[in-house]
Design a protein around this nucleic acid. Structure first.
Length: 423
RNA sequence: GGAAAGUUGCCGGAGUGGUCGAUCGGGACGGUCUCGAAAACCGUUGUACGGGUAACUGUACCCAGGGUUCGAAUCCCUGACUUUCCGCCA
């Protein structure tokens, strides 16, 4: 969440910047500032009364020790009213803090000044593009047909076992998944990321830490008996490793990578967007996460984008990078670059990665801090990106590399698949 | 699922009603010594929110939430979690 001090000190600026995210912050920011003032003023009173009570208690202790019972009893009587005052005031303070917090988590992150204005995908800026558009032969078909033809993915079987959006990968389809996961993890490791294997279910505190809660409550699978959530991305457990952690400045940046299955309810999605592998309830993804010094986080964001670019290049896919507009960005992000690859038979760009700098927004919720040389604690910046999400990569690989003889595997992947063609 | 024990600072581990934010040990950091290092010795070593230009200072925090008391890490209640044993099991 945003830092209350910054909101209070730059109210108008915050409201103006939030507008870029289509968030009308006028009313809520006003309330937040008022609650913060109330919180402070009640605290001053509570502290003062508590100090008085503490002093009285010490005195009573001394008096009792000296056997001055009458005076002790008199002092005791004085505490009655004090305690009532403290109770009343601290209730007020707790109440203000609670309300303040409830409001703060509803305010999205401020977009970076370089974020383009806009509300829809069409308003995103194309940063750069690369790769070669494939020349498909006349009978080229979308990946769902290829998946059936070569018996790679069984969507109907998934429906039987679980429901729509839970495909069953088979044979070379399954091996391709495994190959991609290993390929991505090995690349990440070579780029200096420490591999971790996180839990696939998280508690509510973790959901709040990275901002999925309360904003995206309905998008996560929730195991109510145990009050645990299936992770929508490895970002959640991996970033939460650093919840309530104070790092040494020289430990930064932290670079972690993790493979995980990801679970998303995708409530409200339907239509041709969800065909085949385009949108699933369960999918595989390798994620990269960095915890960085605030001064360096934007350099790091560039590095992460460049790193993801090397992946799509090695996979020989046509790609483009979008700078997301304010309306298309996630709740918690300050600046996001999306990667899309062209899926030639569908003739569509498919999002395969999203790389974001959250600045201190997540860190503030997580209480992820670092200690400066002069022993002050400061919030870290958190960043993450998909590197990469598998299903749409698979869709593009299948579609773009289809030939009458079979589906060609890109050179970089062959050591991982163990085969160079699907036929 | 059944039974028992436990949860204190970076870690280990004291503390069972009053100068306890907390003994001590380890670690880490700084210093002395050394060509350098080790050892030894000396010192430092919490977080959050307030007040104050500042030096400084107030409050809260010993798993969480309630309660008893003038006063709670310490006593009582509730909850969470952890560990061990038994059962079940990849």
């Amino acid at each position: 969440m945003l830092i209350i001090k910054q909101i209070a000190d730059n109210t108008d600026e915050v409201i103006a910047r939030l507008a870029k995210k289509n968030f009308d912050g006028k009313a809520i920011i006003g309330q937040v500032v008022a609650l913060d003032n109330l919180r402070k003023s009640t605290q001053v009173q509570v502290d003062k009364a508590s100090a008085e009570l503490n002093n009285l208690s010490k005195e009573i202790g001394l008096l009792l020790k000296q056997g001055r019972l009458v005076e002790a009893t008199q002092s005791k009587e004085k505490t009655v009213e004090l305690k009532e005052t403290i109770k009343k005031l601290s209730d007020q303070q707790v109440d203000a803090e609670q309300k303040l917090n409830e409001l703060l988590v509803l305010i999205p992150n401020l977009p970076h000044p370089s974020v383009p204005v806009g509300n829809h995908a069409e308003d995103n800026l194309i940063e750069r593009t690369g790769g070669k558009m494939p020349d498909l032969y006349a009978d080229a078909v979308p990946h769902w047909d290829l998946a059936k033809k070569y018996d790679l993915i069984d969507f109907e079987l998934g429906v039987k076992i679980s429901g729509a959006g839970f495909p069953v990968y088979k044979g070379k389809g399954a091996r391709l998944q495994r190959a991609l996961i290993n390929f991505f993890l090995d690349n990440a490791r070579e780029a200096g990321y420490l591999e971790v294997q996180p839990p696939y279910v998280v508690n509510a505190a973790s959901g709040y830490g990275t901002g999925q809660l309360p904003d995206k409550e309905g998008q996560m699978y929730h195991c109510t008996v145990d009050d645990l959530y299936l992770i929508p991305t490895a970002e959640v457990p991996v970033t939460n490793i650093y919840r309530d952690v104070i790092l040494n400045e020289n430990e930064l940046p932290i670079k972690n990578t993790a493979y995980s299955a990801c679970f998303r309810r995708e409530a409200g999605s339907y239509g041709k967007d969800v065909r085949g592998l385009n949108r699933l309830h369960q999918f595989d993804k390798v994620e990269i996460v960095q915890i960085q010094h605030p001064d360096k986080s934007y350099d790091t964001l560039d590095q992460m984008v460049n790193y993801v670019q090397t992946l799509v290049e090695k996979l020989e896919l046509p790609w483009r990078i979008l700078r997301l507009c304010g309306g298309d960005m996630s709740f918690t992000s300050a600046l996001t670059f999306d990667f899309e690859v062209f899926s030639a038979a569908q003739e569509r760009w498919l999002e395969v990665s999203s790389v974001s700098n959250f600045e201190s927004y997540q860190a503030n919720r997580l209480k992820c801090r670092y200690r400066t040389a002069d022993k002050k604690t400061q919030l870290c910046h958190t960043l993450n990106g998909s590197a990469l999400a598998l299903p749409r990569i698979v869709a593009a690989l299948l579609e773009n590399n289809q030939t009458p003889e079979g589906i060609r595997i890109p050179k970089a992947l062959i050591p991982y698949t163990g085969f160079d063609i699907i036929d």
